[in-house]
Design a protein around this nucleic acid. Sequence first.
DNA 1: TTCATTTCTTGTCCTAGTTCAATGTATGCG
DNA 2: CGCATACATTGAACTAGGACAAGAAATGAA
Lengths: 193, 193
Amino acid sequence: MYSQINKNISRYVTFDTNELEIFNSLLEYTTIPKKTILLHEGEMCTFEAFVIKGCVRKYYIDANGFEVILQFAIENAWISDISFSIYEEKPSRVYIETLEDCEFFMFSPETKEELFAKAPKFERAFRILMQRSLAVTQDRLFNTISKSATEKYLEFRELYPTLSQRVAQHYIASYLGISAEFLSKIRTKIAKL
Amino acid sequence: MYSQINKNISRYVTFDTNELEIFNSLLEYTTIPKKTILLHEGEMCTFEAFVIKGCVRKYYIDANGFEVILQFAIENAWISDISFSIYEEKPSRVYIETLEDCEFFMFSPETKEELFAKAPKFERAFRILMQRSLAVTQDRLFNTISKSATEKYLEFRELYPTLSQRVAQHYIASYLGISAEFLSKIRTKIAKL
DNA sequence: TTCATTTCTTGTCCTAGTTCAATGTATGCG
DNA sequence: CGCATACATTGAACTAGGACAAGAAATGAA
């Protein structure tokens, strides 16, 4: 049960058994059915969730009512709107929604602080996780600006082969920043080659 | 001399005099003339720099040889390619270049580790700085995908009023993900209103 | 198994933004 | 000062991708 998350948190920092026991004891296991919105715009995000099983999306709604997907999270990924809400006390601008029935391990801000107090090395692990998210987001920004829709789609399939099976195409279009119709046209063109 | 950076690092975590002395003693003050490339693609990024004075840009070069600016850093901002290079030992994909004569405080990876060893609370401060960078980058990604070029330019001017005076327009265009010519057309249209 | 809802495809027309090229304007430097 | 280089503007022609609409296919609930 804890092996996935323990492997994940130990990726860049080594913890001893005692530290991992503290970590595990603070995790809250939760199951949530599909199509459930975990966080609405305007709310405070009071969780960080590690996906044990299932699939989640995080998205903005723009001025014209269009959804823009910022992140998908599947097994072994973290999802939260950690960015502003927790430390700045600003309401979130994003939505987080399950796309499949999900199992999570959740942290609240309080239990996370408790963890850092009891085992300060986790501060480091979370800092490095954060750096990796930043790296991924910067790369995505670069791709969004500099690549054609076709390139973006092909690279998405390379990078997330399972996701492109699991998730509706219009969600992928929204993630790539293109219209669902245009993605469909790209796909038929690719299929003809 | 140290007041700017001490204020910056204390924004989300409170440090006592002793901790700040340790911090300050590890900083390396450096001046670098304008138009100097601090980091080339393919190198390891071995610094994190705090800008005391001056202006820096961080950019990718895409498959067609076009520059895409990821970040500007002016006074009181941090700049580095922290994302992959330091912990993953992967060469950087970005360039970092001074646009003006600059004064920095620099950290090497080793002195940063020394800092964390001597005063672990800094781990937390850097984690929160990282979270803020992530928030800013996510916001930028959202804007890039969902807004028109005109909106992006107007918001850029709102958000970074000094920058839009200080740096060449084609750099701003590159940051916004539009061509320099089109930015020029937007500006003349705005001026006519 | 049927009906409803959501998702995907395809076509037509349209526009925001690009590319290229030419000209004008600053700016830095010996 | 004068020249060279970098930077900004403008226009004309082009294109990637969007918006809309209508139909087809898949999914799902009862």
